[in-house]
Amino acid sequence: MGELRDLNQLKPFHLDVLKEIGNIGAGHAATSLSTLLKRKIDMKVPNVRVVPLQELPDQVGGAEAEVAAIFLRIEGDAPGSMFFLSAIDQAERLIRSLIENEDFQLKQPPFDQIGLSALQEVGNILSGSYLSSLADFTKLNLQPTVPGLSIDMVGAVLNYGLMSISEVSDHALVIDTHITEADNESEETSGHFFLLPDPDSFQVIFKALGVDVDE
């Protein structure tokens, strides 16, 4: 299939490989978060799907849902975009317990700077551990950019990460992993990792893992 640009050409075993990538990356990130919070963090089996760009925001509550979003670009052998998205309430909970300040809120600015820095740092740690495990596993050179933080509508923050994909395709391949706090009875998702490889990166990733793309 040569360029492997048409995502519909991906076979079930390709998706399984990508699922494993989500497992390994988010697994390491969950461990880091668990260490940070001194709490048990659970991770769900990753969801790997080819989604029309328009429908991507619906996976996290719709275009207008408000989230705390951490975004970074992956540079190096297999460029792509990565998001850690968390509902406002969940992000508040996370940061409150981290900085031991029950007044921290993300609903109305101005936001507490220490809390924001903590959130940014959480993003750094999570995405860093996700990516470094991925780089180890694939033996690829993957460099994260410094993450950006935004508290805004899902649709608006996703626009950005979709830019390089949308130049090539109307679909994105999303490796989505939910992480939750193990003792959180409401079972609300603490966060989603979205890994969105650029279209040209699939071939690189599969090749690095010895998976045949021309089958």
């Binding site: 925001p57 719709g62 275009a63 207008e64 805004d152 509508m153 899902v154 649709g155 608006a156 923050v157 996703l158 626009n159 950005y160 830019m163």
Partner: peptide
């Protein structure tokens, strides 16, 4: 009497 709407414009 219809209105027209789009949600979540970022860089778009």
């Amino acid at each position: 009497p219809n209105t027209i709407r789009t949600s979540g414009l970022g860089s778009c």
